[in-house]
Amino acid sequence: MTIDQSPAHHAGVRNVYDGFGRVYRSVWGPNIHYGYWEDDADDSSVEVATDRLTDLMISGLAAQPGQRVLDIGCGIGHPARRLVRTAGVHVVGISISHLQVQQANEDAAAAGLGDKATFQFADAMDLPFPDASFDAAWAFESMWHMPDRGRVLAETARVLRPGGRLVVADVVQREPITPDGQVVIDHIKANYGVTTLGTIDEYEKNLAAAGYVDVEIRDITDNVIRTLLLMADAFETVRDKLADLVGGEQADSLIDFVRRFGSIPESGYIYVTAVRA
């Protein structure tokens, strides 16, 4: 018998993605992240909108062919494969889910990209890579699972070469927390492997402390928040599958709180670019 000796926060994140996350993929698609819509009149599909957000990340990374890119919290590797195809880079993805790592490697091999996209088990707060071993890095909706964003940013700075670019997309706290908002946020934290919701001010301080320059932080909440309402609708279509997995009460709660998280003013989303000094 193998005893899991990984940090306690790993289990909560793994339970989300190895559990109902599989049902999530069945209705949402391979991009396990938010979508980006240009404006309220934009009627793009979820597939188009999620690819558009990936393309925004790729654009911010500005990676050149042959460069080495770290994907922090790679999931099953769909955005990484799009990055490889678009920019001609080599990607190393990390996750604390063994199932995700296995699936990501299998999918990369099946796509003929196994030599350019590899995935491994690793903790972003203690990266198993030498100093200055990557040209660029991104954290695509993985930071809100990290107990210490500042430590992740510092570790990423350590493994980036001087001049290397960092791109982050993260769910954050946009407004001061109200009592109603606190109820929703507490539920999200308790059930979805989320430790804290960061703020723009915290990001600015942590990036500066880690030695990043040319920092740009864009609040793109209005472009992505539609995701949560559409996600709740998608979950409703597989409510019975969710109920079989987590129980009927928990399934209904999941759907309700995803929708509520999309409607509270505290729920925000930022897009960050920075350069390792």
Rank of each mutant, 00 (worst) to 15 (best):
D40A: 15
A137I: 02
L53M: 13
L197Y: 15
I76R: 12
L166N: 01
D214F: 09
V238K: 14
R25D: 15
S44M: 07
R260M: 08
R85Q: 15
L207K: 00
A137Y: 00
V275W: 03
V168S: 01
V167L: 02
F235C: 12
A104V: 04
P147V: 03
D126I: 04
A80R: 05
W37K: 11
D107S: 12
P30H: 12
E202H: 09
T221Y: 04
F257R: 13
S263N: 14
A139W: 00
T178Q: 10
A117W: 02
D126T: 02
Y192G: 00
V224C: 13
A124R: 00
S263V: 12
I188M: 15
A137L: 05
R218V: 05
T50I: 04
A117L: 07
V23S: 09
S97H: 07
T273V: 15
G35W: 04
D135T: 01
Y212G: 03
F20W: 14
V23C: 09
D115N: 15
M57C: 12
Q120L: 14
H145R: 03
R158M: 03
N191Q: 13
A136K: 02
E141P: 07
F140W: 10
A63W: 07
G77I: 10
I3N: 10
A49M: 09
P147I: 04
F134T: 10
D18P: 05
A209R: 14
L166A: 03
E106A: 14
G60T: 00
A80L: 00
A124Q: 01
D180G: 04
L56I: 10
P162Y: 01
R259W: 02
R68E: 13
L197E: 10
P65N: 06
A234Q: 00
L70I: 11
P7F: 07
R260L: 12
R226E: 10
Y269C: 00
H187D: 14
G211K: 08
D222M: 00
Q5G: 02
S6Q: 15
V69Y: 00
G211N: 09
A208P: 01
M125T: 12
M57Q: 04
L228V: 02
V152E: 04
T118S: 08
Y203N: 01
A124K: 01
N191R: 13
D107N: 10
V275R: 14
A11H: 08
A251M: 06
H145V: 08
G60I: 02
N31T: 08
A124M: 11
L197F: 15
D39H: 14
I185W: 01
D107H: 03
G19A: 08
A208G: 02
G164D: 05
